[in-house]
């Protein structure tokens, strides 16, 4: 009700009609703040992870919140097929999402029910990536986590075992669920998280880009308070660095890029046994 208070609790001679004739305020819109980094780690000679980031802003009196698209993919498959798959999945998804969401918004403030909903756009994007990868790079696979950020709200689509985390004043919270068999066994109480961490099947996914046939895509919608963080990362980070350390590293750095760099360094210090990727976004102030 803040704006109503502003509108009606000031000097009573002012009405909205008069306001319109008054001077227009200047707008300083919040900007998208993103850091990202991908690193092969210390053991592998090539990087099968892929990160893609797009940000856009528009200063205007109309509702045109800053737009961000964060995409992370972690590929698998021999003969360099994994890196081809992850890069292709990220690009195809980003193309679909910008084409269906941001580009139409440039034509005016009116949204239209003839356009698909954001969650549908995200699901379609992941399925388009699945189809392309299945056709172009058969025998490969990749995880895919896409976050479309509008202002302070994130729309997330996800398959595989890369993760999206929210880091807030309360701590760290995993937003996505890993589509791995051991994760389901933990969910159902058949394995403890400690047993899962060393389980021989911990890399076996039951859902990923590159699988033939129908692909079910998880979606999440999440609002972030100002100063909260959204982190996308591959298992090369979350498998080696504890959540507590991740929180400390992020909160200890004002620069998001530097925070990403330090998270990668921590994973390498822990052995760097896999490719490491982090994409970090901070909810804009105001």
């Amino acid at each position: 009700m803040e704006f109503l208070r502003k509108l009606f609790c000031r000097d009573t001679r002012a009405t909205a009609t008069e306001d319109r004739e008054g001077p227009q305020p200047t707008f300083t819109r919040p900007r998208m703040d993103v850091g990202w980094i991908t690193d092969p780690g210390r053991v592998r000679d090539h990087n099968e992870d892929s990160a893609l980031v797009i940000t856009a802003g528009h200063d205007t009196h109309q509702a045109h919140p800053p737009f961000g698209l964060l995409v992370l993919a972690d590929g698998m498959g021999g003969h360099r097929a994994g890196e081809v798959a992850s890069s292709m999945a990220a690009r195809v998804a980003a193309h679909h999402i910008t084409h269906q969401s941001y580009l139409p918004s440039l034509l005016g403030p009116e949204r239209d029910a003839r356009h698909p909903a954001l969650t549908e756009v995200l699901i379609d994007a992941v399925q388009a990536a699945n189809q392309m990868v299945s056709e172009e790079v058969p025998g490969s696979g990749t995880t895919l986590t896409c976050a479309l950020v509008l202002g302070t709200q994130a729309y997330i689509a996800h398959v595989g075992d890369s993760r999206a985390y929210a880091i807030t004043e309360e701590g760290i919270e995993q937003i996505t669920h890993d589509h791995s068999v051991v994760d389901r066994l933990v969910d159902t109480g058949q394995l403890t998280p400690e047993e899962a961490a060393v389980h021989p099947q911990k890399n076996v996914l039951y859902r990923a880009i590159g699988q033939s046939g129908a692909l079910e895509v998880d979606t999440h919608v999440r609002k972030f308070d100002e100063g909260d963080y959204l982190l996308l990362c591959s298992d090369g980070l979350w498998g080696l660095v504890s959540e507590a350390t991740v929180v400390d590293l992020i909160r200890g750095e004002d620069s998001l890029q530097e925070a990403c760099r330090r998270m990668v360094a921590a994973a390498n210090d822990a052995g760097g046994s896999d490719n490491i990727t982090a994409v970090l976004w901070r909810s804009p102030l105001g």
């Binding site: 509702a63 918004s105 949204r111 909903a117 509008l150 709200q153």
Partner: peptide, 27 residues
């Protein structure tokens, strides 16, 4: 809510709109 505007229409849909931008989040 803090995040969304929910509304029905005679086109048979229930819409979930982003509260700040009016972007269609789901239907």
């Amino acid at each position: 809510t803090d995040e969304m505007v929910y509304i029905g229409a005679q086109d048979r849909y229930v819409y979930g709109l982003d509260v700040r931008s009016g972007w269609l989040a789901w239907r």
